[in-house]
Structures are given as structure tokens and as C-alpha cells.
């Protein structure tokens, strides 16, 4: 334990470099994750607007039309269905075309009862619409296929890109920590040889180096977390000033804190311990 911490001070520059790289990597990963998370959330919010409109046959009574809601909810991919009577639809219609005389003659009787249906997965929109059309009493379905597809693709791209960036940066940190520990072991190769000679177990020989890697990872994670917190809140403050229209809705950092702590320290632990372990293994077999 003491040995490992001592090691960090002993090869100070390399340790400092390793921590800096870890901090930088985690910081980029963190910033990126926060950004992706928020963008993803906004996209999801927007995607809610790609609702499916289900028009009900005019031959049905009000009660019969309303009862179709339960059938709709039974369809697999349906998340939520909201009934809108023709009277409510007319009100919306008038509100939307406020002051436009061309539509002043429209009456409730000209419109149909309808359900506004939100799907769980917009990717399956086509199949779900097919299923809905099978329900008797459904006259017509209006589905915004292109919109939904666009949003889904955007989300896919975001997810893949962020996964790639995160993996690359983690590998970089891993490599750097691994090299730091390798250097530490190289510096103490004579001591290690003597330990082996007098019968120290491999576990005993390894321990200080694993502790060193672990500490490097943890210090890196803590520093990165603190910096990210600062950065995120500063950015939010700035944005709040500029974005008076509230176009962007950012999750407050406090809500992201727990997953971030877990991720950062998990990553620090992983990078530190795995990084040192791999270099030790190579070294110990000599």
C-alpha cells in the first residue's frame, strides 16, 4: 500500500502525465456523454411529436368510438393513446387557423373522432400502423414515417459516435497508465528480482504496482469529475443567458451526478487496475 503511493511520487513526472491524460480523456468522455445525453433527450422529446393519428369511422357512436381506445392500447408497440372528440378537434383547428376566414365554415360534424397514438419504438411504426388498420372502426391512419425515421437515425448516429469516442479515449488512458506502471516496474527491476529470489509471492510483488495504477486511475477520475461539474454548470449558466427562448432544455448536473460518479470511478478503477495488471503480467513472466 505505502509502496504504491510512494511510487507515484518517485516517478513524479510520468505519474503526473498519466493522471493528466486520464483526466483529459475522462473529461472529454464526460463532456461528450453529457452532450449526447442532452441532445438525445431533446431528440426524444421532439420524436414524441411524431405521433400517429388514428381517425375513427363516422358511422360509430361516440361511446363506440371511445371504446376503440382499449383495442389500440392492446397493440404491442403502442405506448399511449389519447382520445380526441370531433368537437375538441374543431377547437384545435380553429385555434390553429385563428382569424383565417377561409375555414370559418368548418363544423364539428365535418371532422372525425380521432386518437393520438404515441409509440414505444418509432422504428416499428410501419408494422404498428398495419396492425391498427386491422381494427374495425378505424377509418384511416396518418403516420409521419419520414419524420420518425429521421429522428431514429439521428439517435443511432449519436449513440454509435459516442460509443466510439468513449472506447478510443478509454484505450488511450489504459495505455498511458499501463506504461507508467511498466516504467515503475522497470525502475525497480532489481528489487523485483531480489523479491523473487527470496521467495516473495507474485501477488505480494504485484500489489504496490496495482495500488499505484489504482491510485492513478482514482485521482484522475476525481479530478475529471470535479472539472466536469464546474464546466457543466458554467456552460448551463452561459446558455441560460443566451438561450432566452428556452430552446434547449438541459438536465441539471445534479441529476446526472450519480451515473457520472459511478461511470468515472468505474472507468478510473478499470483503467488503473487493468492498465497496471497487464504491464505487470508481461513483466513478471521474464
Amino acid at each position: 500500500m505505502k509502496e504504491g503511493i510512494r511510487g507515484i511520487f518517485l516517478h513524479g513526472f510520468m505519474s503526473f502525465a498519466a493522471i493528466c491524460v486520464t483526466v483529459a480523456c475522462l473529461l472529454i468522455v464526460g463532456t461528450f456523454s453529457c452532450l449526447v445525453y442532452n441532445v438525445n433527450r431533446m431528440v426524444e422529446d421532439l420524436n414524441k411529436t411524431s405521433e400517429v393519428l388514428v381517425y375513427i369511422d363516422t358511422a360509430l357512436t361516440d361511446a363506440e368510438a371511445k371504446s376503440i381506445g382499449t383495442l389500440l392500447n392492446d397493440v404491442d408497440n403502442v405506448y399511449k393513446s389519447t382520445f380526441k372528440s370531433r368537437e375538441e378537434a374543431l377547437e384545435d383547428f380553429i385555434a390553429d387557423h385563428d382569424g383565417n376566414d377561409a375555414f370559418s365554415g368548418v363544423e364539428a360534424a365535418d371532422l372525425r373522432h380521432r386518437f393520438i397514438v404515441e409509440l414505444e419504438d418509432n422504428r416499428l411504426m410501419e408494422q404498428t400502423v398495419d396492425q391498427i388498420q386491422q381494427i374495425s372502426g378505424v377509418a384511416k391512419v396518418n403516420a409521419p414515417y419520414e419524420l420518425a425515421e429521421g429522428f431514429s437515425m439521428l439517435q443511432d448516429v449519436l449513440q454509435i459516435a459516442s460509443a466510439a469516442v468513449i472506447i478510443i479515449l478509454l484505450l488511450v488512458s489504459l495505455l498511458i497508465i499501463s506504461n507508467t506502471v511498466k516504467l515503475a516496474m522497470h525502475e525497480r527491476r532489481d528489487e523485483i528480482a531480489i523479491m523473487k529470489m527470496v521467495g516473495a509471492t507474485n501477488g505480494f510483488i504485484r500489489l504496490p504496482f496495482v495500488v499505484e495504477g489504482f491510485t492513478l486511475g482514482m485521482v484522475g477520475a476525481a479530478a475529471a469529475f470535479g472539472l466536469l461539474w464546474l464546466l457543466y454548470n458554467t456552460m448551463m449558466d452561459r446558455l441560460a443567458i443566451v438561450d432566452t427562448l428556452k430552446l434547449f432544455t438541459f438536465e441539471p448536473f445534479e441529476n446526472l451526478m450519480l451515473p457520472m460518479v459511478v461511470t468515472f470511478f468505474g472507468a478510473g478503477l478499470f483503467v488503473g487496475v487493468v492498465g497496471s495488471w497487464t504491464s505487470i503480467r508481461k513483466f513478471m513472466d521474464v
Binding site: I194, V198, G199, N202
Partner: peptide
């Protein structure tokens, strides 16, 4: 076995020409 080797080595003290001191 690899993990028995340290215990074997505790029964055998070794001295070399070049001392190998720290």
C-alpha cells in the same frame, strides 16, 4: 506449479558473484 515456486525458494538461499544488493 507456478505458485509453489516462491515457497520452494524460501528453502533455498542464493548467493551470486555480483552480490545483487539494493
Amino acid at each position: 506449479r507456478k505458485r509453489e515456486i516462491p515457497y520452494l525458494r524460501r528453502t533455498v538461499g542464493v548467493v551470486f558473484q555480483d552480490f545483487r544488493l539494493i
